[in-house]
Write a protein that binds this DNA or RNA. Structure first.
Lengths: 327, 327
DNA sequence: CTGAAAGCGCTTACAG
DNA sequence: CTGAAAGCGCTTACAG
């Protein structure tokens, strides 16, 4: 069997209480602390975290539930969340739902069963609508996406402004038949769509909106169809990095150059976006800031449970590249 | 406080033992099972996993420790490992070391404290050398990288053959001044280097080997230096996806076209590699197979602890694209 | 099939 | 500062 705290106590000639205190923050004399540490080394003792959590009623664990870990946006946010968690002496449980509501429910249940300290969550629209604070024994902070107003603390991009910024940029570059392809599963895609629509109307242009599952394959298929239609858009706005990738593939397959055949502008300054000729115009999100702010909200909520719900809205930054150059 | 099994027992009018059996696989009459299920719904009971694990001495948890989650190779392998874990009714703990030996030690310690069922691990060379089976209370399966022979079960690519295949391909395409840039932290990069070196000598060519930290920035800097030297290589082999990306950036920055200015060939068929003109030649790894095989080895080891150590070697597949086209 | 009781490995009031 | 004892919330032999 694994060595337990009793074995260490016996080896050190002290009680298990003293071992526990020596390894934690309890008051122990320097002499005994050294005895205990020697015994730990000699026995190779590793505390059992399940027992510790059960007894101390503190999981010291943060849950992070993201929609798609293949999306570098979430990879980058995860990194920031993990850093903040470890700095606070907490572990991180990372879960990936693949935009699937069933997996979201599964993981939320898991978080409850793990009795986690708090959760950071990027929910699908469907789940976000059903999210009620009173169902959870821990603080829940939403990232990238929002639920009903006043429900949970959250950190999001100013998606309306970002959607509009891409339209303004394309109009400025001389485009007018500008289509928008948006993900079907998130509040974020909806907001980007609304920003797109409002800006188009503001410019006296007619919005052309389509929706897909936010992944490269469905996006490629949809864009391929769209580009084959008469009166097709001369420019497209894509609501996330995976959809943008699908659009690039479709344009490539249709033999359309960027921006001559079709202009493309999207979201997320992923590492490959400047390598694809002639460079892809994107809205860059402050990914590290999003993760850090989310953890800040979480810790604030733990410290002051009663305070009003807060929503942090961060601004994106337009990075103009060749894919939207003036024609 | 959270509702516990005693609350459910009281609500159902049964003992806690019956509740436990009804939720698990113990024998319970249909009538009582329904009573218990109703009580669970009524109370919103969620079992405490820490208590369950402590008592049952079964964590039902697999640890997965990868070197760099930003590398799509590991993202893809993770997916396969997670699928296999969930199919077996196990949870997954995903940890990311960033090729840092200290974090590797930290996470291995964590795995011990979590009393996990087993671990799948892609270790740095430094850690792999120190890995002794007797230090772990759980089976440890290595992926992508190996340790000392006979130490742990593992799944790797046939890296020698893959490194050689890239050389053969480049030679066939008419290149002879072929350099190789390899990661400094993994046994895998070493094997690819050895395969490269052997193939070069077989063709009567002189190997030109350099080493970097396996990340895009250091690779870009190193390739930039290399390409500025007199007698620089006319083709480069890059030992993973991040290094390949760095090389593409360096070539771009130096104003060198592919393959005219410099030919590039690398590892991992990442989604962006066919979008970067004229398409990047890569060795594709069977990522899903690697994850699935690793879990297979793990479960076999749990079932038959005494069996001899097994190493599964899988073959890569050369995908020739424009970046190595005949000059 | 069911319940009373023990105990998984820790931490933490409580007493000294 | 230190130890004996209780107990976190479950599961599982043991009896019936």
């Amino acid at each position: 069997m694994a060595v337990g705290i009793r074995d260490v106590a016996r080896a050190a000639g002290v009680s298990t209480a003293t071992v526990s205190r020596a390894l934690g923050k309890g008051p122990v004399s320097e002499a005994l602390r050294e005895q205990v540490e020697a015994a730990v080394r000699a026995t190779g003792y590793r505390p059992n975290l399940s027992a510790r959590r059960l007894r101390s009623q503190a999981a010291q664990t943060i849950g992070l539930i993201v929609a798609d870990i293949r999306n570098p946006f979430f990879t980058a946010v995860s990194r920031a969340v993990e850093d903040a968690a470890y700095q606070a002496g907490m572990r991180l449980i990372l879960c990936n739902t693949g935009e699937d509501a069933e997996r979201e429910a599964l993981y939320l249940r898991l978080m409850q069963e793990e009795r986690v300290t708090g959760v950071v969550f990027a929910p699908t629209r469907r789940t976000a609508e059903r999210l009620r604070p009173e169902d959870f024994a821990f603080p829940l902070v939403l990232i990238d996406r929002t639920g009903p107003p006043g429900g949970h603390d959250g950190v999001v991009l100013d998606n309306l402004a970002a959607g509009a910024a891409l339209v303004d940029h394309l109009v400025e570059q001389g485009f007018s038949r500008i289509g928008g392809l948006f993900g079907s599963t998130s509040s974020t895609a909806e907001e980007r769509r609304d920003g797109y629509g409002a800006a188009m109307r503001r410019h006296g242009l007619e919005p052309r909106i389509r929706t897909v599952l936010p992944d490269a394959e469905p996006a490629e298929a949809e864009v391929a169809r769209w580009l084959a239609e008469p009166g097709r858009p001369e420019a497209l706005i894509l609501s996330n990095g995976l959809i943008l990738m699908g659009a690039v593939r479709a344009a490539r397959a249709a033999g359309l150059d960027l921006p001559g055949g079709v202009a493309l502008a999207g979201f997320d300054n992923e590492p490959w976006t400047d390598l694809v000729a002639p460079g892809l115009t994107v809205i860059e999100q402050p990914v590290a800031e999003i993760g850090a702010q989310a953890m800040g909200l979480l810790f604030d909520r733990l410290k002051t449970p009663g305070q009003p719900v807060r929503k942090v809205v961060l601004s994106g930054r337009l990075i103009a590249r060749g894919s939207t150059a003036r024609r």
